[in-house]
Structures are given as C-alpha cells and as structure tokens.
Amino acid sequence: PKCKGCFKAIVAGDQNVEYKGTVWHKDCFTCSNCKQVIGTGSFFPKGEDFYCVTCHETKF
C-alpha cells in the first residue's frame, strides 16, 4: 500500500497508522490544523481531516 501523506510505499517494518482502509506512515499522520505528528496518539476525525486533541478542543 501507499501512504496517503507522502504517497510512498509502506513496506514491512514501517510503523504506520490505518484508519478506515487508508494507511499513513506514522510520521505522515498529522493534525490538519497545527501539522504536528499525531502518529499513534489520540485524534478526532472530521470529514477528510484529522485533529490532535489540543486543536480539536480549541477549534470545536
């Protein structure tokens, strides 16, 4: 599969995040607002966007 963030291949051994059939490298899975890496931490999906806890609390 290819990462939705950088469009490069995800190979065995890469740390990745999967959500609803889409996959990202862990470092490519970032907050849509502040761009900080969410990685495998908590996040809030809103449509096609993903927000870290801090930005979600501030924005919504």
Rank of each mutant, 00 (worst) to 15 (best):
P1M: 15
P1I: 15
P1A: 15
P1L: 15
P1T: 15
P1H: 15
K2M: 15
K2W: 15
K2E: 15
K2S: 15
K2A: 15
K2Y: 15
K2V: 15
K2C: 15
K2I: 15
K2T: 15
C3W: 01
C3I: 00
C3K: 14
C3Y: 08
C3T: 04
C3P: 01
K4E: 01
K4W: 02
K4R: 07
K4Q: 10
K4V: 15
K4P: 15
G5K: 08
G5C: 13
G5M: 05
C6P: 00
C6I: 00
C6F: 00
C6Y: 00
C6A: 05
C6H: 00
C6L: 00
C6Q: 01
F7Q: 15
F7Y: 07
F7M: 07
F7E: 14
F7S: 12
K8T: 03
K8A: 04
K8Y: 11
K8D: 06
K8P: 00
K8M: 12
A9S: 03
A9N: 01
A9V: 02
A9P: 15
I10Y: 06
I10P: 08
I10T: 14
I10Q: 08
I10E: 08
I10N: 05
V11I: 06
A12G: 14
A12P: 07
A12C: 14
A12S: 06
G13K: 10
G13L: 10
G13C: 13
G13A: 14
G13N: 02
G13T: 14
D14S: 07
D14C: 11
D14R: 07
D14I: 12
D14T: 13
Q15I: 09
Q15P: 12
Q15A: 06
Q15H: 14
Q15V: 03
Q15L: 09
Q15W: 01
Q15G: 07
Q15E: 11
Q15C: 01
N16T: 13
N16R: 14
N16W: 08
N16A: 02
N16K: 14
N16G: 09
N16V: 05
V17R: 13
V17Q: 12
V17P: 14
V17E: 07
E18Y: 02
E18D: 10
E18K: 04
E18I: 01
E18M: 04
E18C: 09
E18V: 12
Y19M: 10
Y19D: 12
Y19L: 13
Y19Q: 14
Y19A: 13
Y19G: 12
Y19W: 11
Y19E: 15
Y19K: 09
K20W: 08
K20H: 08
K20L: 05
K20F: 14
K20E: 14
K20C: 12
K20M: 08
G21C: 04
G21F: 09
G21Q: 15
G21W: 13
T22H: 09
T22C: 13
T22K: 04
T22P: 03
T22W: 11
T22A: 09
V23E: 13
V23P: 13
V23D: 14
V23Y: 08
W24I: 10
W24S: 01
W24C: 02
W24L: 06
W24E: 03
W24F: 07
W24Q: 04
W24D: 02
H25D: 03
H25A: 01
H25C: 13
H25P: 02
H25Q: 03
H25M: 01
H25L: 00
K26G: 13
K26V: 14
K26E: 10
K26T: 13
K26L: 06
K26Y: 02
K26H: 03
D27V: 05
D27A: 05
D27C: 06
D27L: 08
D27R: 08
D27E: 08
D27S: 10
D27M: 13
C28Q: 00
C28S: 02
C28H: 05
C28F: 01
F29A: 04
F29L: 13
F29Y: 07
F29T: 01
F29G: 07
F29P: 03
T30F: 05
T30S: 05
T30K: 08
T30D: 14
T30Q: 06
T30V: 13
C31D: 01
C31S: 01
C31Y: 04
C31V: 00
C31L: 00
C31A: 02
C31I: 08
C31E: 02
S32T: 09
S32Q: 08
S32G: 08
S32A: 09
S32E: 04
N33Q: 15
N33S: 08
C34E: 04
C34R: 01
C34K: 00
C34S: 00
C34Y: 00
K35Q: 06
K35F: 02
K35G: 09
K35C: 11
K35Y: 07
K35H: 08
K35N: 05
Q36L: 07
Q36F: 08
Q36H: 11
Q36R: 08
Q36K: 05
Q36D: 14
Q36G: 14
V37G: 06
V37Y: 10
V37D: 04
V37W: 05
V37E: 05
V37M: 03
V37L: 09
I38E: 02
I38R: 03
I38C: 04
I38M: 13
G39P: 06
G39W: 04
G39N: 08
G39V: 12
G39C: 06
G39A: 08
G39T: 06
T40C: 03
T40M: 08
T40I: 08
T40P: 06
T40F: 11
T40G: 11
T40S: 07
T40E: 14
G41N: 05
G41V: 06
G41S: 10
G41K: 11
G41Q: 09
G41L: 09
G41I: 07
S42W: 04
S42G: 12
S42V: 07
S42A: 11
S42R: 12
S42Y: 00
F43D: 03
F43Q: 09
F43E: 08
F43K: 09
F43W: 09
F43M: 03
F43A: 09
F44P: 05
F44I: 07
F44E: 02
F44D: 10
F44H: 14
F44T: 13
P45M: 01
P45G: 02
K46E: 06
K46T: 10
K46N: 08
K46D: 06
G47D: 07
G47V: 12
G47R: 07
G47C: 01
E48I: 15
E48P: 06
E48K: 14
E48G: 10
E48M: 14
E48T: 11
E48L: 12
E48S: 07
E48R: 12
D49C: 10
D49V: 09
D49Y: 10
D49T: 11
F50W: 11
F50C: 10
F50G: 02
F50P: 03
F50H: 02
F50Y: 15
F50S: 04
Y51C: 10
Y51S: 06
Y51L: 05
Y51W: 15
Y51D: 15
Y51G: 03
Y51H: 06
Y51E: 04
Y51K: 09
C52N: 02
C52L: 00
C52D: 02
C52S: 01
C52Y: 00
C52Q: 01
V53C: 11
V53L: 06
V53H: 13
V53Y: 11
V53K: 09
V53I: 11
V53S: 06
T54P: 07
T54F: 10
T54D: 09
T54E: 13
T54W: 03
C55Y: 00
C55F: 00
C55H: 03
C55S: 01
C55G: 00
C55W: 00
C55R: 02
C55I: 00
H56Q: 04
H56A: 08
H56T: 05
H56P: 02
H56E: 13
H56K: 13
H56I: 01
E57R: 06
E57P: 12
E57L: 02
E57N: 02
E57M: 07
E57S: 09
E57D: 06
E57W: 11
E57G: 05
E57H: 15
T58M: 02
T58E: 07
T58W: 04
T58S: 13
T58A: 08
K59M: 02
K59G: 11
K59W: 10
K59D: 05
K59P: 11
K59I: 04
F60L: 10
F60E: 11
F60Y: 12
F60M: 06
